[in-house]
Design a protein around this nucleic acid. Structure first.
Length: 222
DNA sequence: CTCTGGATTAGCT
DNA sequence: GCTAATCCAGAGC
């Protein structure tokens, strides 16, 4: 299952269209060594937040102190705090000056599962990192790690995935009507670690080929 | 300064 | 399925 030849993803990996990055990240390994332990797992669910025209993106409406990292170089960590409890992990994408990022929504635990389970206070492996707030907690990542360089050895992603995954797309979760027409959530079909927070019926999920076609319309890239 | 709502989760009905 | 928890960023004054 683990592929050989996994290497830390270079900055160039992140310096592409955010949709390509979000899809390419599925199957890669996200690793955190923030407390001297190697924690992490396989990325199984991602979402795209792209540009000042995307009403669900934190950069909608322009630059602020919080979203500043999204305007910088790709390959850095954007962490923010929400709902009074949860940290969200994003990786900055695209070129300097264009605000965009991929939200990591779920991991399949691989490294030091016992420690991650402890941090999450659950014995259930399916509950360790099957949601964006859950995985940040399991990995020990907080806003202290805002701006960490993902090409350095503290927090990084290894790839590429050698597996052939069946990937599906759907609308993003938790954004309400803001950009609801965009199919910018991507996940590995049938992986039990994909988040269950918002159960989507089959009609709301699309094969990757169809979703990509819709995502790359002029409407989304004007 | 004050107010509003959130890229969620856990726990209960 | 429903909602309280919990606190900060951003907007408005």
């Amino acid at each position: 299952m683990l592929s050989l030849n996994m290497k830390t993803l270079p900055r160039k990996f992140y310096s592409r269209n955010t949709i390509d990055v979000a899809i390419s990240l599925l199957g890669c390994h996200f690793i955190s060594r923030v407390d001297g332990r190697k924690l992490g797992g396989m990325i199984v669910e991602t979402e795209v937040y792209r540009g000042q025209d995307d009403p669900a993106c934190h950069a909608f409406g322009g630059r602020t102190p919080r979203n500043a990292i999204m305007y910088g170089d790709p390959g850095f960590l954007y962490v923010y705090f929400t709902y009074g409890n949860h940290f969200m992990l994003n990786v900055v994408t695209e070129r300097h000056g264009f605000p965009a990022a991929v939200l990591l929504r779920a991991l399949e635990p691989i490294y030091d599962i016992e420690e991650m389970a402890r941090r999450r206070n659950t014995p259930d492996i399916l509950n360790i990192s099957s949601g964006p707030g859950k995985l940040a907690r399991a990995l020990g990542i907080t806003t202290k790690h805002y701006g960490v360089d993902l090409t350095k050895p503290q927090i990084y992603i290894e790839g590429p995935s050698a597996q052939h995954h069946h990937i599906l797309a759907s609308p993003r979760i938790g954004v309400g009507d803001r950009g609801a027409e965009k199919l910018w959530r991507f996940f590995i079909a049938d992986n039990p670690h994909v988040s269950k927070g918002s159960r989507l019926n089959r009609e709301q999920c699309y094969e990757l080929s169809a979703a990509r076609k819709m995502s790359f319309t002029a409407e989304n890239f004007k």
